[in-house]
Design a protein around this nucleic acid. Structure first.
Lengths: 213, 213
DNA sequence: TATATTCTAGAATATAATTCTAAAATATTT
DNA sequence: AAATATTTTAGAATTATATTCTAGAATATA
């Protein structure tokens, strides 16, 4: 708790963010395998020694890019959810609104951060392999915790299906990510954002309970 | 059309399949990056020269594993769809059945081929990067063609929503893949197969048209 | 049987990741 | 403020690994 234990460098985070953004650009253009440490050195301005000192190895740099992206998305999702919770609505509308807002968070973040999203979709193995997996898991766990507590009364009232939170995640994110992945790889022509409402409707119909008809 | 143009080696495919399965085992255990050519040589029994002669480079081996897996899945999906088409059903039931059967195809293939599925989920970048992307696209395109023609009358009758086929794919595969990905990475405890029916129901509710209520 | 083609082998080479040593910068203590 | 410790940067040296290359074996074709 003493002052010394507070992270000392205030510039550090911004600097790290800068490095990760430039690394992302390299990875997006050449893939993780195709990006050499030399390329990262040139793109970021940091020396080879520095990169290894701070990250450990190349995969860990990719992993850090991944985490940074997920945190960024998490922040947006949290913001959307907070705003919703401040809005006074009848329970039935609240249920529908909540599902849709979570879809919007996914669609909007991906739309605004296409490179980051593409990287995340295409490089999941990198984090599964690394220790950062736990970091990530803790982040989503706390978010899920909030959601569980939020949906409980809506489930009890019959406005939402009684399913484990993992399936809520699947129905909310799954279709968005599936479409986004193909779109970001150039295999679909219509932008994800165009289907924002259709995807939200679909998730709502998949998850609404009997009392919501 | 002459006999010479028919692929000459009958053993070749089985042998290649064998090699790809062993390569998959390596990749699953150590990741693509963590697997060296030497490891692949030892695991498959083929020499370094042979591997390069047949595949070109390491990524191409991974890419071939990917394609093999997707074709395997495609065959199962096609089988399920054919069986359905032979079943005489009233249009309304047919709509629901079709959506659910496609979900089952996904769930069942993943359940039976967990290593292959995990590999596919975690290494999509490899194929996006390679030329094999087109091979894959053509495969799914012909399958999608069948689906489009199949759903047309059901859409016209109001039993299914009028959405582009890409969104059908998203609502059918998205939630399954999202859950499966986490499950196969050890982040969820309940097996995918346990949620087979719930996932099918969800997809159906997301896609059913007004005439199906 | 002779000739061409494809396939296998493994050593040689090239490329790129990682480590290492020392110097510079920054922080901490006296 | 000077002395000391710690963290960070640098880039050359090393190690690991992918890829290429040459020659010989196997197989197909004429």
């Amino acid at each position: 708790m003493s002052r010394q234990h507070v992270k000392p460098h205030s510039k550090t985070h911004a600097k790290k963010r800068e490095i990760l953004e430039r690394a992302l650009a390299c990875f997006s253009e050449h893939g993780v395998t195709g990006t050499t440490i030399e390329m990262l050195r040139d793109a970021t301005g940091a020396s080879v020694g520095s990169l290894y000192h701070h990250f450990g190895n190349k995969e860990a740099i990719a992993s850090a890019v991944f985490i940074e992206g997920m945190n960024d998305f998490g922040a947006l999702a949290m913001k959307y959810l907070s705003e919703l919770m401040e809005t006074p609505l009848p329970a039935k509308d609240m249920a529908e609104r909540a599902i849709k807002v979570m879809v919007y968070a996914n669609v909007d973040w991906i739309t605004r951060n296409p490179d980051w999203a593409r990287f995340v979709f295409q490089n999941r193995r990198i984090v599964s392999a690394s220790d950062d997996d736990d970091v990530l898991r803790k982040g989503t766990a706390s978010f899920y915790g909030k959601l569980i507590e939020f949906k409980a009364p809506l489930v009890a009232a019959g406005y939402l299906k009684d399913l484990p939170i993992e399936l809520y995640g699947a129905f909310i994110s799954g279709p968005v990510h599936d479409y986004a992945r193909h779109y970001l790889a150039g295999r679909h022509d219509i932008p994800l954002s165009e289907y924002r409402e259709i995807l939200a409707e679909g998730a709502w119909h998949a998850l609404k309970g009997h009392g919501a008809h």
